[in-house]
Each structure stands twice: as structure tokens, then as C-alpha cells.
Write a protein that binds this DNA or RNA. Structure first.
Length: 180
DNA sequence: GTCCGGATCTTT
DNA sequence: AAGATCCGGACA
């Protein structure tokens, strides 16, 4: 949930990635505790927002116990249909970590925001539809540099959801599709 | 101070 | 297939 003045934007989280602690080479905190990663070392439930590629912001939820840097990257939201012009466009407006921060209007000003505070500018609540049974997993996106950590299946999504950012490789079936 | 490269998206 | 675009982190 994102509130700016009188406007409220609501999305359902449909895709995430886990970044787990100082040993995970894909986790920013693996290079030590710095000003940027500071909030990841703080208490869980706060927002870790950073800039990638010089142009896109990414929104993470700090998850570990205090002092242990871990976070979950929110990669895609499904939108309330009334928030989009057209059903098809709404489905993709927040598909992808950079897209969703743009759609929410989240940037570094929201770094450290308390995501459990429903009276704040940005928060998460468990008020959506029941958790889906079918969750698909895959390797995290864009972290090939992370050695063996890149192979961990730490990307999670709701199976078949139209708002997923990048397709999940399907289970082998005959001549398995090499993802292209 | 300087340099390098990225948890992406859009356009060709 | 490649450009946009800039900060954080590593080195000096």
C-alpha cells in the first residue's frame, strides 16, 4: 500500500526474491556494512530502497533478525483493476522491480520506512486473497556474478500469474524449453 | 579522486 | 541488441 496525500495505490505482491545475509554474494550486504545497506542490518519490516543501473529504484523488505542483513526484493505487483486504464496494461504496470517502484512512486526517500505502519506512506498488510497454493521458484534475476549463490532457487512467484516480470522456466516436459 | 559495473527497462 | 544514466564500493 502506498499513500501520497489523498491517493492510495494498492497492489498484491506476486513475485519476490530472497537475499540472505553476508555470505550470499548476490546480497548487497555481502560487501560489508555501508551507508547504503545500513537498513538491512536493522530490524525487520522496514524498507530497503536503492538505485540500480543509475535509473531504477528497487524496493526490498528487511527480514532478518537485527544485525543480520537479509531482505526480500519485491519484483512484481498485481494491481487492483481500477488502478489501471485497461486490464492488460494494469497487469504489467508493476511487473518488474523498477516498474513497480515507479508505479508506487517509491524512491530513496522511502528507504527505512516502517512497512508495518498502516498510517505511514508505505506499508504491507495481509489483507489480500488467500495465499495461492501454486508457487513457482527459480534462480534470481541478474545475479550471475554471484557464483554458486546464483544457482539458488530464491525467486518465488505465483504460478502462471500474468504480472510476473520474467517467465519462470517450466518443468521439463519432453524436449524442455530452453528459456530464451 | 578515479574507475568500474550493476537485484532494469525501453527502444531499435 | 544496445543505450540510458549515476551511485556505491574498491582502489589509490
Amino acid at each position: 500500500m502506498r499513500r501520497r496525500g489523498r491517493s492510495l495505490r494498492v497492489g498484491l505482491i506476486v513475485e519476490v526474491e530472497a537475499y540472505d545475509g553476508p555470505r550470499d554474494l548476490a546480497c548487497h550486504a555481502s560487501r560489508g556494512r555501508t551507508a547504503r545497506t545500513e537498513v538491512m542490518f536493522g530490524p525487520a519490516g522496514h524498507a530497503y530502497v536503492y538505485l540500480v543501473y543509475g535509473m531504477h529504484h528497487c524496493l526490498n523488505v528487511v527480514t532478518g533478525p537485527e544485525g543480520y542483513p537479509a531482505a526480500v526484493l519485491i519484483r512484481a505487483l498485481a494491481l487492483d483493476p481500477q488502478d489501471g486504464d485497461e486490464a492488460g496494461q494494469a497487469a504489467r504496470a508493476a511487473a518488474g522491480p523498477g516498474r513497480l517502484t515507479r508505479w508506487l512512486g517509491v524512491a530513496r526517500a522511502q528507504n527505512g520506512a516502517d512497512l508495518c505502519d498502516r498510517s505511514g506512506p508505505l506499508w504491507i498488510e495481509a489483507s489480500g486473497p488467500p495465499a495461492p497454493k501454486a508457487i513457482v521458484t527459480g534462480p534470481r534475476i541478474g545475479v550471475d556474478y554471484a557464483g554458486r549463490w546464483a544457482a539458488r532457487l530464491w525467486r518465488f512467484g505465483i504460478a502462471g500469474h500474468p504480472a510476473l516480470s520474467v517467465p519462470f522456466a517450466r518443468k521439463k516436459r519432453g524436449a524442455g524449453p530452453a528459456r530464451g
